[in-house]
Structure formats: structure tokens, C-alpha cells
Design a protein around this nucleic acid. Structure first.
Lengths: 217, 217, 217, 217
DNA sequence: TATGAATGAGCGTTCATTCAT
DNA sequence: AATGAATGAACGCTCATTCAT
């Protein structure tokens, strides 16, 4: 839909550096990248440190050289997701397009990324904030600022759209938040509920119809 | 916003039947109603069978007389959620209102229900479909038809709206699905991310602006 | 040396009740009695919960029904030692004998008990107070009062001896403390260092020579 | 109480040679001297090789160049303790004093040394012989001869006292063994049980009263 | 039917030891 | 010789599930 060959590199970068120059950095990376997938596929609790170690081709003990405990490793995977998301958002924000185009591009990128993790539901959607007690406590301070950050970038794009007369006069943060949620809906429906849903385009269309000024025919 | 005194009863029904006529049925019910809350508050994995047994004032072993295992008990709580949701939807569908009014009423009901479980993120939103491989396998056959059912009821309301000229000509299922997702967004934002979000009304407004025909002023 | 058939029962009681009337009490007892020996033989750290469970013919998990953790089980074994020691001391204190006879009887009892645990160095001698950090913190409040209690009983016997003109005029507590230490010496030398030592009688003799008034020949 | 400036040097020697001429010897020494303190403070099991390596400013792997394993390192620290003890004993034996004076000097030295290791219960008292089966097996052949050696030196002093008519006619080894135990008692009571004990002088006095001939007043 | 004591597989984590550099 | 990253066996503890009462 939109040109994105350059941007895509951000999402895929991790699949390349298996050459291991600095052991240190590489193992950490490898572990995180492995853990991302396993956590996503199996869930936090069902995933064992042994699973991760095995999949990352390191010994169980090695994990603890790089991460204080399971929780920390999990948080590191979240961090990773967010970093990429923010990078992509920033990248797109600074391109030259209409606000709507930027947002459509973002949606496309995100959905691609999520879909790329195949059966792996990307862990950083909002609901994960609510995961069970103790881990939640540590997550909020990590996650909330990142969501805020993401929301802010999108807010700016929305503002831009409002200023340009593309969008209706709406509180930009709310539109931004709803936008992220809409992306999730599109991805989720397409991906997991294809039996009863297959209209991510239609959903996006509804979203933009709600956001945009009435066009004059 | 809308009159809902009658409908509310459905959500609250469980708090009444502590009279225990048919012991059997009563224990099962009591366990489920207790488990709903505990699972919601503590999460599936952190919740122990002992927690539930204790809170439901039965012995641990008793749980296994009524439910094959923890998973089954969990699925039973899901059923409960869905049953209520469907009941409410059906109830509202058959009232005499405009399509938009029905949908707004639904949103209100759902959000009330979710909020009523306090800090407990209601377990039946879509993403839970994806929890942990093994359990998911058993969940799909249970959950998918229910979501389908819910979607269908809402679809009919949407169709109604289209037929009446309230809504644009859109695939009703997609609108229905998106509608449920929008409810979730409104609830979630309001409830867990109040720091960065507080516009459930605005979100709903955007949704309906996207759905409704351009009004002539 | 002294008649002690009755008193001995206290030390040996645990070897009898394997009939298990009240499961509850019996398992707890059995575990403690087993743990006493294993801890003594193998040491706190080298002893695994599995070792104890196995030796006590219960499952690992069962241990945790009766004891919060390894530490608590260990402390319970200490408690046991002390209880018996105090019982024996009290028993002997109230008999009709000279102070010296009482003390010799105590020494004999203690040494018998220790020796009865064969290779098992009884864990309640004073130096255990100093075992490694965390466990120590919990031990002191448990152990110190017990040692105090033991010391006090013996102190009273010493006082008695002083009052009767058997012993020199010495601070009774110090004599009591030294007495317990002397018992340990006698046992230890006899038991573990027989190659270079075999004079528990001679040690006791020295102790009493130091304690008693010069006899007039 | 007694002049001991010269003798003290033996105990303190390790704090001087940080000049590191022969690297080899120096690292080994440094490790042992560090380990002595850490083992004493933290206990054998709670002490990790990393702790020691870190404190001794060497890498973990380096420890294994000088010691086969943790156990061997521990045994080496015992050696150290014993070496010093024997040196001190020998030193004192050859001075010109009465037997009692020599023994009092020994007691003072030992207690000073123990106290110098601060909260660290000196690891070479007899009871440590009994730590944990496996290690014990290796310890006995190392430790027993040393204790024998120490006992013998003290025995000679006792014999001397007997010969000079200072002491009663007692088996010197037993007196020697009891003497070491009495030192331990004095130190231990003073150091760890000050709440219920504070009479190391009184204890020593009792010991010597038991050992010495009745004086004629 | 209801109980809850007993079970034991399974997990997170530690740490002595190895080995490539 | 010296390093310290990597290893993996081993342990304490949890908790879903069973079963004798």
C-alpha cells in the first residue's frame, strides 16, 4: 500500500546478526529475540527459563548472567517491542505525507510486525499492563511511559491532520489511543478470528471516517 | 444514560442465590462465581485451586467433583461471562430503540460490568483467546462460537441501523466486531490508563461518527 | 554410674511411637526425629529436603505441610533437643541427691543422649549459635532463652551445692556454663578424638576438683 | 597481662606481605588469607568461590589454579589456622615461665586471635571436625594430626607443671585437651553469649583450680 | 458426597567448575 | 598464567491432583 522497504528494516534487523562479534551483546540479543517469540507463543507463566535457554542455545545458568530473573527477561522483551515501535513511529512521523497517510503507514507496519511473529501475539498491547500482581508492579513504570510516548507521537500526527483541516477537531490523544486500539482490532480479527472476521481494511476505513472531516462531494 | 434497571439484574444475579436448595447446583454455581472474581483479579496462573476452594468455602477436593481440572473450571468461568454477555445483548436487542441507542446501552452495560469486577480485567475480551497454547486449544471451541454469537446479535442491530438509514452501508459483522473492540478500548483506557487517557465518551463518539450516515445540519 | 532407667525414657521416647494414631502429630514427630539425625549427620546445608522426606517416608511436599521451610524444620529439631534437655534437667534437679551427684547424673544423661545419636553430633551445642547469617538471626531468639533456661537450672543446682558447703563460692551461672561446656568436651573427645583422647571421667574429675571445696583429708 | 609483642607478629603476619615478589606464592597466600576471613564470617556453604575471588582481587578461575576445589581451599585455610596456632604454642613453650603462666599466655593469645577475626568464629576449634560427612573425611587426616600436635605441646607444658609440682598428677593429654576446650568456652561465652555469660576469667580460674595442687595458705 | 492430607512432577535459581582466549 | 563467560547439576519450594476416610 505504501512504500516501506526502508522502514521494514527496523523490524527485521534482529534476524541478521547471528555472527556474534561481541559475545556479550550478541547473547543478550539472541536471548531476548528468542524470548520474545516464546513468551508470545506460550505466555509468561507457561514459558520456562529452560525453554528459553534451550531455544536460544545457551545454558540455563547463562540467562542469569544477563537477566536478574525471569521477570527481568520478560521486561527486556517488552522493552524491545517498544523500542522498535517508537523507532518506527518516529521514522514515519518525519516523512512527508498527509496525516492520514502516515497513520495508514503506521498501521500497516504494526500489523506486519505482529503478523511476522506468526502465532506470537505481540505482548505489548495494552492489556498486558494488567498481568497479575507482582509483575504488573514492575511493568507499569516501564510500559506506561512508552505507551505515553507512542501516543504522543501519534497525537502530533493527529494534530497535524487537524491543523491541515484533514481531521475533525478532536482531542488528539484520544484519537491516538483509539487508533492504536483499532490497529490491534484489525490485526487481531484478521489473525485469530478469521472465521468470523476479515475486514481490517474496513475497520481502518471506519476509523478514518470517524476521524476525518466530512468531505464535500 | 439509559434506563437499565431490569437488565442490570442479569449481571448481579449471582449475588442472590445463596439459599442452596439443590446443593449440587449451588456449589457449582458458588465455585464459578467465586472463581470468576479470583481469576479476574489474580490471573489464571497465579490463582491456585486452594485460593478458589477457600474463597468458595469448599474443600479443595470438592472442586474436582464439579470440574475435571483447573482448566475446566477456568473455562466454566468464561462460559459464565459469555452467558451473561449474551443475555444482556439479547435483552437489549429486543427493546424498542434506535440502533444507536441500543448500542450505546450495550456499551454502558458492558463497561459497568467490567468496572464492577473492580480491578479485575474481565477475562472474556478477545485477547484472552490467545492465552497459552494448551489452554487456548480448549478455549477456541468454547469461546469462538460465543463471540460469534455476540457478534451476530450486534450485527443484527447494525443491520437494523443500516436498514433504517441510521448507519452507512457497511459489512455488519465488521462493525460489530469493531464495536466490541471499541468498548474494550473505552473501558481499558478509562480504567487502567487514566494517566494518559480519559475519553471513553469521545471514543464512542468517534466510533459512531464513523458508523453513522453524514447528518444534514 | 547412677540409676537412670526412668529418666532415660525421655530421651528414647521418640523411637517408640511409630503406631501413628493421629497422622498429623505423628508425621510431624517422625519428620523431626528423622531430621534430627540427618541434620546432625550431614549438616544443615548438605542435607536436602528430599533426603529428609525420603528418610521419613513422606513426600517432599509433605514436609511443607508441617514446616514453612527448611529453616523452620531445622529450628524445630533444635527445639526438640532443647525440650528434652530441659526435661531431663528438671527431672534431675528435683531428685534427692547432692549437687555433685545431680551434675554427674546430668553429664551422664547428656553424654548418653549424644552418643545415642551415634555419628550424629547433637546440634544444640553453643557454637551452632554462630551458624551463618540468616539462619542465625532466627536461631538466637529460639536458642538463647533455652540455653539460659538450661543454665539457670544448673545454676540452681550449683547454688544448692554452694549453700550446702559442697562447692566453692563461685558465680553459679559461670560454673553452670562451664559445666555444659565440659560435658561437651568429654563427649567430643571420647567420641570423635578417641585416637588422642579418652578421658571423659578425668575431665569431669578436673571440673569438680575446680568447683569443689578443698576437702580435708 | 603478659608481654607478647613478639608473639603477636605471627598472628598478624599476613597483613604485611602485599609486596608480591613471587607472584605465585603471593596469590596463594592472599587467597588463603582472604578466604580465612570470609569462611569465618560467612560459613563454608554460604561462602561462594566468587566471594573469595572478588575479595582477593583475582578471577574465579584463578582460584582453581592454586586449589583443586572449594574444599581444598577450605582445608588450606584450616592449615593456616593450625600453622599459626602451632607457631604460637611453640613460641610460648620455649619461653621462661611457670607452666601456668605459659598456659595463661596461650589462652590470651588464642582469645585475642579469635576476637580479632571479629564476628568470625574461628573455624579451627574441634567441633568443625564434624562438619558434613564428605568434607569431614578429608579433614580428619589434615586436622587430627594438627590437634594432636597442639595437644602435645600443651601436654609438655602440663608435664612440666607436674614435674615442677605446680599441677596435680593428671594425664597431661587430657588436661591439654580440656584446656583448649576451656579456652573455647571462655571465648565463646564472652563473645556470643554475653547476655548470659561474662566470666572468662572465672572460667580460667576454675580450670586452674582444678589443675593445680592445693596451695597451702 | 465432601474432605484435606499426601503426593511428586516441575520450576526458578544458585554456584562450583570448566575452558576458550 | 590469568581470566571470566558459560555451563548444568542440584536444591528449595509450589501446587494441581489424588484418594483414603
Amino acid at each position: 500500500m505504501t512504500d516501506q522497504s526502508v522502514i521494514n528494516e527496523y523490524w527485521l534487523k534482529e534476524s541478521k546478526d547471528h555472527t556474534m562479534r561481541k559475545k556479550n551483546k550478541d547473547i543478550r540479543e539472541r536471548v531476548i529475540n528468542t524470548a520474545v517469540k516464546i513468551f508470545a507463543k506460550t505466555g509468561y507463566f507457561r514459558t520456562t527459563m529452560e525453554d528459553i535457554a534451550h531455544a536460544a542455545h545457551v545454558a540455563k545458568g547463562t540467562l542469569y548472567l544477563y537477566f536478574k530473573d525471569k521477570e527481568s527477561l520478560y521486561l527486556a522483551t517488552l522493552e524491545k517491542h517498544f523500542d522498535r515501535a517508537v523507532t518506527v513511529l518516529t521514522e514515519i512521523e518525519t516523512t512527508e505525507r498527509s496525516a492520514e497517510e502516515k497513520m495508514r503507514c503506521i498501521a500497516e507496519q504494526f500489523i506486519n510486525y505482529m503478523t511476522g511473529l506468526k502465532d506470537a501475539y505481540p505482548v505489548f498491547t495494552f492489556e498486558n499492563l494488567h498481568t497479575t500482581g507482582r509483575i504488573m508492579k514492575k511493568m507499569r513504570p516501564l510500559v506506561m511511559p512508552r505507551i505515553k510516548q507512542m501516543t504522543e507521537i501519534i497525537s502530533r500526527i493527529v494534530e497535524e491532520g487537524i491543523a491541515r483541516g484533514e481531521f475533525i477537531d478532536i482531542e488528539p490523544r484520544i484519537a491516538a489511543f483509539y487508533f492504536l486500539s483499532t490497529i490491534r482490532t484489525a490485526f487481531f480479527g484478521e489473525c485469530f478470528m478469521s472465521e468470523i472476521f476479515s475486514g481490517s481494511d474496513a475497520v481502518m476505513k471506519m476509523f478514518f471516517k470517524g476521524l476525518k472531516k466530512k468531505e464535500v462531494y
